[in-house]
Design a protein around this nucleic acid. Sequence first.
DNA 1: TTTAGTATTTAGTCAAGGCTAAATTTATAA
DNA 2: TTATAAATTTAGCCTTGACTAAATACTAAA
Lengths: 224, 224
Amino acid sequence: MLSQAVEDYLKTIYKLEERSSATTNEIARAMNVAAASVTNMLKRLAELKLVEYTSHKGVTLTEPGRKAALEIIRHHRLIEMYLHEALGYSWDKVHEEAEHLEHHISEEFEDKIAEFLGHPTHDPHGDPIPTKDGKLPETNHDSLFKTDAGQTVIVQRVPDSDSELLRYLADIGLKPKAKVEILLKAPFNGPITLKVAEKEIIIGREVAEKVFVAPFKTETKKKK
Amino acid sequence: MLSQAVEDYLKTIYKLEERSSATTNEIARAMNVAAASVTNMLKRLAELKLVEYTSHKGVTLTEPGRKAALEIIRHHRLIEMYLHEALGYSWDKVHEEAEHLEHHISEEFEDKIAEFLGHPTHDPHGDPIPTKDGKLPETNHDSLFKTDAGQTVIVQRVPDSDSELLRYLADIGLKPKAKVEILLKAPFNGPITLKVAEKEIIIGREVAEKVFVAPFKTETKKKK
DNA sequence: TTTAGTATTTAGTCAAGGCTAAATTTATAA
DNA sequence: TTATAAATTTAGCCTTGACTAAATACTAAA
């Protein structure tokens, strides 16, 4: 069994690899530990064959490393969903609890809650839940910030770990599946005016960059 | 926050104190660690003011130590109940999962599952669940082994950690709340014949010593 | 009260994971 | 190409919790 620390490193590396590549410093920053600690751990992970490590060049996950990372991510997102759906946690509180529990549940627990939830594909923040055999749908949504005025979109995903942001987003209705019309974008990366649930709201760049959306398609119903 | 190791020691000490007193060797045996490791830990626990430690004399929990132990036990038993009731775990599997989870849930989680369960007083094995303010009802039941033939009793409690035994007990109907008539006790600590749910069953000493019961009272209904 | 046996503690190790400070490597800009 | 900055690694240290082997303390029986 992998230690919690090892699991946390793998998860972090996985997420960094998604965006670009995982270097010592980036891992250190993401995990809030000293760079020297990371170097140590990377050597150990390499010995465990969980990563490919080249000194001064960063790391990449091996196949077993990737599998392990996805397993933890599956735990995390299933637990978030379970806390929200079964225990009535608000969506800004699920991340922290899941952050601990993800390392300590058994396969049986995982299966039982997945079953209970009807094998969900996404967590409450719109993040996809890896399948048990380690598959994760490709998702590559644009942020609200990059979307042009005049478009109508559906919110797909928001960040999961910033409670304050999540409370704000819930407040203004920017939750996954919400329909959003982009009314106006002020020049020079200024505020964006949206219509959400019949209400007009104005958000700034910082928030707009963190809300990911996909185009709304009217004729999504396939009536054959 | 206390480490998992510290919590496990406190829990073990608490349970040993219930039966008699907690000595280095007994703790070592109960936890499956070397006695020297226990000595080390006892010194640390004493520094943390969680136990009173006198060299060569064993330990007793201080008030904060007792509180902490009861909190873990509350977690454990609530989780067992939750796994059983909400997730359909069989009663022989709840202990092991709870053994891990008990260290990693938040106050909020504790409260949410207690709420969900309607603030239960006992876990699936009949062990009492400490209240949030650290109260635990006195329980001092006799075992089936110590009960005389001819008596009718109600099962109160069975051990929680022996899966095989639990499966056997479930099989023959010896679960908490079951009504049991003691038909016959063979001499020289021999087999005991019981009537449980209209069926006659025969159990040996080893099992009888592990099932705790209280006298059945017909007129328990207080109709004023 | 001596002695054997048992319980306990001491001493010294080890691995995991963290840290800081110093050294080194790589990258960049003049 | 060379100086400097930034990234990374090395070296050495710390704490937690485990271990074994050796020393010591307690207890009970002769």
